[in-house]
Amino acid sequence: MKLFAHELRVEQKLFWRNREAAFFTFALPIVFFLIFGSVYGDSTIKEGARRVRGAAYLEAGMIGYGIASTAFAGLAITLVIRRESGILKRVRGTPLPPAVYLSAVLGSTVIVFAIQTVLIIVLGHVLYDVRWPTVPLSVVLLLLLGAAAFAALGLAITTAVRSAEGSSAVVNAVYLPMAIISGTFFSPTSYPHFLRVVADLLPLTYFTKLARDVILHGKEIWADPGAITWVACWGAIGLAVAIARFRWEPREG
């Protein structure tokens, strides 16, 4: 526990000190929220049969984009860089148990994502008059479910990246299209049929749907077990791939 707390502090320091990475994973979803919020915050958007305010719709979408950017993309890029620069190998050579190390890395990701979500919710309320979430327990569960599933997918995708230089290219090529297709920026109602078919497979689609239900409509998260199952299954697949193929050592040496 002492080791976990030590490593959690280390991870936080490392995250905030790397300004470029902190900007892309932490600040960018907030920046996008401000930009798109000022574009269509006040218009109404079709969500299925319902019509909702743009700002509220976008707020939940940006929380979905945030999970993809912190837990999936940010985590994966950080771990690939650490692996290829030999830091994971060095850590492996110390008495710090690998499980404690990885838990602290994930714990730190959850902290970053939680701060980001709170900021998005506060900004949404203050700037765009989006109402406060009414089901706090479900909000917490939502964050934990998302962080666990997307972090597992983040660990999994590190195994597909071969070099530190390639890490942002590969990860961005996966997560940016995923964020757009899943409808975190715009309502996918107007997307062509094949994109909607793809969207129906992606975990972020279901996470974003849960985020809208919980944060916009005040539903408890367990009201949609189907969506939870989709997100959890993707997380389980990610975890299985990570357990089978995660490496601590760089490609050479």
């Binding site: 490392l14 000190r17 790397n18 620069s85 030999g86 830091i87 190998k89 060095r90 050579g93 110390t94 008495p95 040496g253």
Partner: peptide, 16 residues
């Protein structure tokens, strides 16, 4: 592991 110290052939540090 607590009793051994390792210098690997290539350097690996946190730049920041």
């Amino acid at each position: 592991r607590a009793q051994i110290g390792i210098v690997l052939q290539s350097s690996s540090l946190y730049p920041n």
